[in-house]
């Protein structure tokens, strides 16, 4: 594999690889198998792992982008897209200053943050009713 996942530490200046990308890909693979068999979703906090400069980007490049992309506007934007591996989603939460607050890989059919929430639906219903009068 020609990627950050297989690079050792005899690297070029400015490149540092912890070797954490490949195990993460294995974790995603196991989570996908589990999802197919039991429908048990999985969520990985990308930022809880030590990553060298550029390594997180290497991981994101490896996962690529698939067919679906959504943008949330809630306490700043959130970018959510399915990777080139169906069922594997990358969820990145930003604040209003475009700084990343958290980043997750979700293995699921639809990330739960995309679903309408009952409280918000109720609030919207009230506003619609008030608007109609």
């Amino acid at each position: 594999m020609k990627s950050g996942a297989s690079r050792d530490s005899s690297n070029e200046p400015g490149e540092v690889y912890t070797g954490n990308v490949l195990p993460l890909l294995h974790e995603i693979k196991h989570a996908l198998q589990r999802w197919l068999e039991t429908h048990e979703p999985a969520m990985i906090d990308v930022r809880s792992l030590p990553m060298g400069p550029g390594e997180e980007d290497a991981l994101i490049d490896l996962l690529g982008e698939g067919e679906v992309r959504a943008r949330l506007s809630a306490l700043g934007r959130s970018d959510i897209y399915e990777t080139r591996y169906p069922g594997v989603w990358l969820v990145t939460h930003y604040n209003d200053n475009e700084e990343i607050m958290s980043r997750f890989i979700e293995v699921i059919d639809v990330p739960s943050i995309l679903k309408s929430q009952a409280d918000d639906v109720r609030d919207g219903l009230n506003r619609l009713a008030a608007h109609i009068g």
Binding site: D45, S48, H93, M101, S102, F104, Q117, D119
Partner: peptide, 24 residues
Amino acid sequence: ISRRSFLKFCASTASLMTLPPAMI
């Protein structure tokens, strides 16, 4: 702040407390 925003807040909060995502 909407419920969905609150869930986003909770996800980031769990991450900052180094709790596993299953705890969200």
